[in-house]
Design a protein around this nucleic acid. Structure first.
Lengths: 229, 229
DNA sequence: TGATGGTTGATCGTCAGCAATCGCGGAGGG
DNA sequence: CCCTCCGCGATTGCTGACGATCAACCATCA
């Protein structure tokens, strides 16, 4: 018998839906970094009350995508090099833990899924479908976190990755050395599957440290190109 | 249950104040784990509207102290052994990063402050002022995080530590081997001051791993003593 | 006796309006 | 010409009321 999916998960509360809508706009770069958000305007566009919009914005503020200036304004977060550094160092620490736990607790089904995703990644690189590469890259890291079976870790990692995506969109930074990217991921997944926690943690960290250096270099070369609307 | 006092006299944002009031009550163990929170009751005690209380509860939910069951209830979070494991593993990862950064970036003034706090800790243990020991312990770790100069790390660490406190209060777990506690902290601070990032990270992690094992043992021996209201 | 269905009281989710606060532009003086 | 001060418009903060939803209880029936 096919499982009945819970209806509760489907029933999105209005403020969550509003947050989703605004979040999507921000992550797609439609709203510029530092851009102002008006409660009234959002409530009209989303066709909900201002109170609901306020709840949604508060949620997004907790996720780090928007900032509140009390009594004055809401604005989309800025993306400074310092932010990038914070995101990648924190990401390295979290993914290091995730990789360790995944290597310790992963079962055969998990390993199969990881192998499959790595294969996808390899194919996408070979076919030069570079937009897909980024998505698969994100998904691969998310799968490792899921295997770690650590609720708080998963939540934090999700927020960080969201901000990483945000930063990539607004800074125009994307990975370049795709061959190295595939190698690093393959090595990391290999360590997880072969149950080598120490190695997995180490690889996850060095993978992120390599990226933060590339990103820092990129940000120095390409100062902010804000497209205020 | 002790009363929550009115907020009307102060000047900060009302919803933050409300969150502070409720948070204090939870962390002091006045509200039992799993205990129910009524929006109307809280709004009467704090003398603010229900909407403000809702904003405060949403913030506390983000901090992990309360949980929401949609359309049904707010309740103080439960504390399971699994939660303890999550908190300490995550704490180890975050403090590992913090110790590394502190060892890399700390200046003379930072070192002085750390030494002073370690001295305080040593004295408190020698004098057997065990309530103070816990507070100083928390403060010492917070100082390391501050020296790391990492906004997101500090924020996350603060939330985790808050939940650790909460868990300690509700599970009745407190450190026992105070001599080892002093030694471990002294070694950690020593590594930070002597600018040995790798060693500092390692010590911070092992310090936490030692605690999680003690806590797991304690939780097994003392099954939950829930005092539901 | 146990299960089922309807009713009810309580609680949460949302809304529209009023009050508090801030930034900005213009008037006035040096 | 520049600086300071002040009033106004715009925006956010907060509230009370209304509508939606749920858990618990009780009557009914196989």
């Amino acid at each position: 018998m096919a499982k009945l999916t819970s209806l509760k998960s489907e029933k999105r509360l209005l403020d969550r839906q509003a947050a989703d809508g605004i979040r999507t706009h921000i992550l797609e770069g439609i709203l510029p970094a530092g851009g102002r958000l008006l409660e009234t305007q959002l409530s009209e566009e989303l066709e909900v009350s201002r109170g609901t919009v306020r709840a949604a914005l508060a949620q997004l503020a907790r996720e780090g995508l928007v900032q509140q200036v009390a009594f004055t304004r809401w604005q989309v977060s800025e993306t400074s090099p310092r932010d990038a550094w914070e995101l990648y160092t924190l990401r390295a620490a979290l993914e290091g833990l995730a990789a360790r736990l995944a290597a310790e607790h992963g079962v055969a089904a998990d390993h199969k899924r990881l192998k499959s995703t790595v294969a996808e990644l390899t194919r996408a690189v070979k076919d030069k479908r570079f937009e897909d590469v980024t998505d698969i890259d994100f998904r691969l890291h998310q799968e490792i976190v899921e295997i770690a079976k650590h609720r708080r870790l998963a939540e934090q990692h999700g927020f960080i990755m969201q901000q990483v995506r945000f930063h990539m969109v607004h800074s125009g930074f994307f990975p370049k050395d795709y061959a190295a990217l595939v190698d690093e991921h393959a090595a990391l997944i290999g360590a997880v599957i072969e149950r080598q926690p120490d190695l997995a943690e180490q690889l996850a960290k060095s993978h992120n440290e390599a990226e933060v250096k590339l990103l820092a270099a990129h940000t120095e070369e390409n100062p902010r190109t804000v497209t205020a609307s």
